[in-house]
């Protein structure tokens, strides 16, 4: 029996691994740039999935809209701050790790 609620739960649970791998990436990747990859991408997808799941379970459309607003804001904040940090690192001559 697939209801919206169950679908939401599925999405939420699917979101979790992204957070975990984001952290794993943060810990395992070799330099600041690659860690930025892990941070921005994995976490945003995880958050997106969780927001999708919660939206499926939400009571009204205003809540859904608010959830999406939150996601957009987090996307903006993380991609911008990621770019700023990377740029600042480039300007400070921090060389990327090469194999």
């Amino acid at each position: 029996m697939i209801t919206l609620d169950n679908l939401g739960i599925l999405c939420i649970v699917m979101g979790l691994p992204f957070f975990l791998t984001g952290t794993v990436g943060l810990l395992r990747f070799p330099d600041i740039y690659t860690r930025l990859h892990a941070l921005t991408k994995a976490d945003n997808v995880g958050l997106g999935l969780i927001i999708l799941g919660l939206s499926l379970q939400a009571d009204n459309l205003f809540t859904v809209a608010k959830l999406i607003l939150i996601w957009i804001l987090v996307l903006i904040a993380s991609s911008a701050s990621c770019h700023l940090v990377a740029r600042s690192a480039m300007q400070k001559n921090i060389h990327p790790w090469v194999k």
Binding site: F18, G25, K41, A42, V45, W97, V98, K99
Partner: peptide, 20 residues
């Protein structure tokens, strides 16, 4: 991109080969 990062972070030998 999320899946990509996940794959790279979890692969036994880090599957990264960065460049600019």
């Amino acid at each position: 991109s999320g899946i990509d990062v996940m794959r790279r972070a979890l692969s036994r030998r880090l599957a990264v080969n960065p460049g600019l």
